[in-house]
Design a protein around this nucleic acid. Structure first.
Lengths: 254, 254
DNA sequence: ATCCCGGATTGACCGAGGTCAAGTCGAACC
DNA sequence: GGTTCGACTTGACCTCGGTCAATCCGGGAT
């Protein structure tokens, strides 16, 4: 927009999408390097949030989409009685804020679980760029669609699984995302509280606590406060679908 | 916009978006009449499905988005063990098929609950039109976002509510959608089976059956097979949030 | 008209997970 | 270094909803 600002951008953007370690996981995935430079112009800046810091809250006007650059966040909805449902936990490379597209207001809240840094994509600019770069448009749709599918997974987990399977699936899911981030997928650091986990799974905190203990007794995990070592990934994977056979008699609903 | 053109459109496009009774609920909502004509060119044709007919199944290549024109469908995922989770029920004006945007394959199945007719929007064509009509692009994003929000509602319902509240919310939701369709919102016709309802809510049929009976005893409903009369909409609304107070102690998760 | 079958209802019983209460532990703060 | 506070764990008990089984009922086929 402002030519002067553009020059500055080029300096600032040295460490931007084009060179970001997350570019293969984030919006740029599958985008050519020239188009990538265009995308860079849509990234306003990086925000930093401390633990508990709020990125957006319910009712906030829609201004931007956000990419987690480092750290982690939770998103949740809260009804008039104050009752909370955690919708998801978000690791680097993941994009949040889509809930506001429908009504131009956020209908959920995003909160940092630890010190986190965020890339902000002002929607007006992003829209302009996507209209110029069809590949980016497609990619954006793909990312939203992934969000829809992720929620399907969440729904299946809550609706059909036993508590123990739910926790196993949750941990396995985290481990898989660690792997995509090139982290050691057997050494998880749970930035969220037990309350958050329980709420996310539709359980109470006592149940989650007991399940961690049980999985430890079974030799699947070693748990120490927020750090979880997956000693037996094979067993964990096994637990993700045991008992499903029993539940399968509800099959072919209708 | 141009009143003259409107008259012409109505003649030319008798059976198309421009004259469709659903246009205010469907993709065209908020689109000018000239752009609407463009949208019409993206609608391939109408398909008709009988009860049990499959619109798309898990693994099918992504070809189109679909608008329910009449009748109703359910969407669901099915895991390798055959275990099903119903994701939603879809009434006229609602758009389905977004799950395939991520990977160009559907990851769920859509099945007619009764004889239904469907508008097919081939995605290649739709994409071309949306790239020419920014308003339509926005509208499409808005519709997907609504899908995300709808799934939030589903998640909250499954995660936090008692069985009776769940059923109340389900029925209230249906009634609200009936109202948008200008139908009598106190006389529901449940095109889905009790199994489908139970599965959707994460319950078993017996529980759903008992709850219908209980709500009937309470004077809230009159139930006769698939037809449900809501005698006391006020009570039904009340039931949607009672007991939430008790659950609210899990508040502020974390 | 009768049979049959699948969806739906109802009852008796049971168990996974919620509730309530009593600790334990670690980290932050004087 | 002790105190405090909140997150977490563990145990005892209870309840809601699941399980199993016995009908009921209506619609379609013979």
């Amino acid at each position: 927009m402002d030519p002067e600002a553009n020059v500055l951008d080029l300096n600032q953007l040295r460490r931007s999408c084009s060179s970001c370690a997350l570019s293969e996981l984030c919006l740029p995935a599958g985008i050519g390097s020239d188009d990538l430079e265009r995308l860079d112009t849509a990234v306003r800046d990086k925000r930093t949030l401390d633990r508990g810091g709020v990125l957006y809250r319910d009712g906030d006007p829609f201004e931007a989409l956000y990419v987690v650059r480092s750290g982690s966040l939770k998103t949740f909805v809260q009804d008039e009685t104050g009752d909370v449902q955690v919708l998801g936990f978000h690791l680097p490379g993941e994009i949040i804020g889509f809930d506001a597209l429908a009504s131009n207001r956020h209908v959920s809240q995003a909160e940092a679980l630890e010190r986190s840094s965020i890339c902000e994509l002002p929607y007006a600019r992003l829209q302009q760029v996507t209209s110029e770069v069809p590949a980016l448009h497609r990619q954006l749709m793909r990312v939203i669609s992934r969000e829809v599918i992720e929620e399907h997974r969440h729904l299946v987990m809550m609706g059909r699984q036993q508590a123990q399977e739910q926790l196993a699936i949750f941990l396995k899911g985290l481990a898989d995302r660690y792997q995509r981030l090139q982290r050691d997928s057997t050494a998880l650091t749970l930035s969220m509280s037990r309350y958050d986990i329980a709420n996310y799974l539709g359980l109470v905190v006592e149940t989650v606590s007991r399940l961690f203990s049980r999985l430890e007794e079974m030799g699947v995990l070693e748990v120490n406060r927020k750090s979880v070592r997956i000693c037996r990934p094979d067993l964990l994977a096994e637990l993700c679908r045991s008992n499903t056979a029993a539940a399968a008699k509800q099959r072919d609903a209708g």
